[in-house]
Design a protein around this nucleic acid. Structure first.
Lengths: 139, 139
DNA sequence: GGTAGAGGCTCTAGTGACTAGAGGTTCAAG
DNA sequence: CTTGAACCTCTAGTCACTAGAGCCTCTACC
């Protein structure tokens, strides 16, 4: 029926101190306590925490998660915001991918430039890191 | 011949407080001072800071940068380490790209699931964020 | 019912890589 | 010589946790 913070941690994959942190930050409800002052959770807490965890895994910033949580608490509100947040995150992810791909090209060039020269003084890798003008594109 | 911390900031694109922070962290030399206690820099400082900045732009962690800096200070050392660091970073970047691409697929699915339903209660986007089991792959 | 030890509690401080602000001093141009 | 932009140090704040100290409670077994 109810379960401890450790149970909740195991079920959601969120660490115990992180759950307490989320509580302090107001992301999850303050749970009921046992007579001995220990937290006890229920199914609804598990769902909310799983939501947060999943959204975090998807790279959403806490502010976006707060917005989504607020939205899900007012079920009669229009959900256009939720859609907007998801699309925004998608744009973010795509732009990060593009940036990393530029970086990939750059690093490929750098790490293939080691010609087996043995001394750091002649190391092309070090030179490549030092000299931005050698880069093919901007970043 | 010599220049101020503001000049150095402009030339490298590293902000003034960040330069002072790097000094405190031992990433750059403690510069000479004017009679009035202001920092004065030279070409070598500019080069070192540009190196750091470029490497940071490439996503290298500070520890890797420290290793590269240490290496470049001992020019007779073999440079295999530099090559290893570059290759390691390349692997990292590639793995981050793969992860983000999975996320992209996921977010595409989520953000196309809004069927114009107007109420948050029925919002597929919120459901998708809540329910990990709807995900196609792992993450 | 007693006890051991796993797990719970609060609180403070630390992480990385900076950033912001307060309150004061110095430099360089006019 | 004056003005004001740029410099100085120091502390504290950011984000999203994480680590540790020191203490308390719950549960399972005897």
């Amino acid at each position: 029926m109810d379960f401890s913070i450790g149970d909740l941690a195991r079920k959601t994959g969120v660490k115990v101190p992180t759950i307490r942190y989320y509580e302090k930050e107001g992301l999850i409800d303050t749970p009921v306590r046992t007579q001995g002052n220990q937290r006890r959770y229920f199914q609804k807490d598990l769902e909310r925490l799983a939501f947060i965890r999943h959204a975090r895994n998807m790279g959403l910033p806490m502010t976006a998660i707060r917005a989504l949580l607020a939205l899900s608490e007012r079920p009669d509100q229009p959900c256009a915001d939720a859609d907007r947040i998801a699309k925004e995150q998608l744009r973010e992810v795509r732009s990060r991918i593009r940036q990393l791909q530029k970086l990939e090209v750059e690093l490929e060039r750098i790490s293939s430039s080691c010609e087996g020269g043995t001394r750091a003084a002649d190391c092309q890798v070090l030179k490549a890191f030092a000299d931005h003008t050698l880069c093919s594109g901007e970043h």
